[in-house]
Every structure is written in structure tokens, then in C-alpha cells.
Nucleic acid binder design. Structure first.
Lengths: 113, 113
DNA sequence: TACAATGCATTGGTTTCTTATGTATCTTTG
DNA sequence: CAAAGATACATAAGAAACCAATGCATTGTA
């Protein structure tokens, strides 16, 4: 089962920031695979969505890049800038609060962890 | 604090369906006010978003309408159809699962209720 | 009597994502 | 060894969902 793309709207930036926060540096393709793996394929990030998002985050000054070569193949690694780290904390916190609000609105019982 | 509109994207239909599920019948303006009130103003539904959504849900056969007059003022009440009720259950369940997935991805601890 | 609130609705524009396509390299398999 | 699939980047056209602004009309309030 894959979540309807409607649900995932608006969460992509937060996911990317959080992954980079926990992994120091990652490249685009790696991000798509990691998310697929971590969510049991329930969230699939398409490259057409990811790359523009990465470029946007870089433009915003939240990410820095460094290119590496594996043989002849290019890899573009992304890392959080200091502002990116701050922004990540902010966004994750906001999302957590949003989830609480939604859980209340939809009368969803929190899962016991 | 109001949640960034980015976050709320994709949740509007679910919210509307759930409210109608719990309240038998509601009119548009009432929905905007109820959500504002239930979320401590953290979620604001604009009318430009709500009315097209209500019309879409009606087109999908999930809602039925009945017009009532309060003096000269029109009120258009929306109610769930049987398919709407089924869809609501489905969507809320999907959202709950999505929240679990996101909590895991973002490493968010569930709030103790 | 003016302003705010109630109540419906649409329109134009933006953001965000999807689908499709393009280029190139590396690995696996028949 | 050729073809297919995986890896890896990227863009472009279009759809979907939402926001901000506006419009109309009625009711309540200062």
C-alpha cells in the first residue's frame, strides 16, 4: 500500500531536512531509496519531485553541496548548513505539533510505542 | 501560531469528512469556524479552499446537500452519503497510518494522552 | 449609519507534485 | 556479449490543491 500522493503533499521538505540532519551527507538517489526502505515502500519519492526540492532548499541557503566522482559517475552530496539545522529543528517541531492537532481533530488514538 | 499552509495541504478533505461524520450536517461557514475553534486557531480554513472542496466531494458522491433559510439568509447544509461514511473511515485510517510512518521517519515521540 | 460578522461563491495566481523524457554509467543475466 | 535493469543526474509540461482577493447579500452591533 502506498499513501495517496495527496497525503504526502507538503511533507517532502521536512523529510529531506530530517534525513540530512541525521546523516551528515546524502545524495539524491540515496534519499529516495532510504525513504522507500524506512517506510516499507509506503512513501515513494519521485525524482521529479526530489531534485527541484533539493535545488530549492539549496537556493534558500539551507543546504550545501559537494560533488564526488565514483569512477566516471557523478554524485552530488547534500549537507545541512547551520541555518538548515535550525530550520530542521523548527520544521520537525511544527510537524509534531501539527500531528497532535490532527490527531485531536480526527479523534485518533496515539499508538503505544 | 498558524501552521504553514504547506503542512495543511492534502488534509482538508479528510478534515471535512471527519467533521461531517461526527456532526450529521454542517454548512460551510460553520466548518471553518469549528476547525478554527477546535484547533485554537492553528488551522484556518479559507473559504477559497473550502467551497471548491465541498463541491468536489459532492461531485464524487460523498456528500449530499440541503438548503435552508434562516430568515432571508441561505444556508447550504452538507451531510455524508453512505459512500461518504465509508470513505471517511478509510481516509482517517490511512491518515493515522501515515502519522505513524511520519513519526518514525522524523523520530517524533508520541505524546502521552 | 458605518463596520464587523455571517454566508454563499468565483477568479487568478502560486506552489507542489506527477508523468514523461533525456543523458550517461555501471552491473547483472541469459 | 548484448540487453536489461539499476544507479545517478536533470528538466519540462501539466495537473492538483490551495491562497488571496474580490464580489454579493444579510444580520448584528457600536
Amino acid at each position: 500500500m502506498i499513501y495517496s500522493s495527496e497525503l504526502i503533499k507538503g511533507t517532502l521538505k521536512t523529510i529531506v531536512l530530517k534525513l540530512l540532519n541525521d546523516n551528515k551527507k546524502m545524495y539524491g538517489y540515496e534519499i529516495t531509496q532510504r525513504v522507500k526502505e524506512m517506510t516499507g515502500e509506503k512513501i515513494q519519492i519521485t525524482e521529479g519531485a526530489l531534485y527541484p526540492t533539493l535545488h530549492a532548499l539549496e537556493q534558500e541557503g539551507l543546504l550545501t553541496t559537494q560533488v564526488e566522482y565514483m569512477g566516471k559517475r557523478v554524485r552530488k552530496y547534500y549537507s545541512l548548513s547551520p541555518e538548515g539545522k535550525a530550520k530542521t529543528k523548527e520544521r520537525v517541531k511544527e510537524f509534531a505539533s501539527f500531528m497532535d492537532t490532527m490527531a485531536f481533530l480526527l479523534d485518533i488514538k496515539p499508538k503505544i510505542a
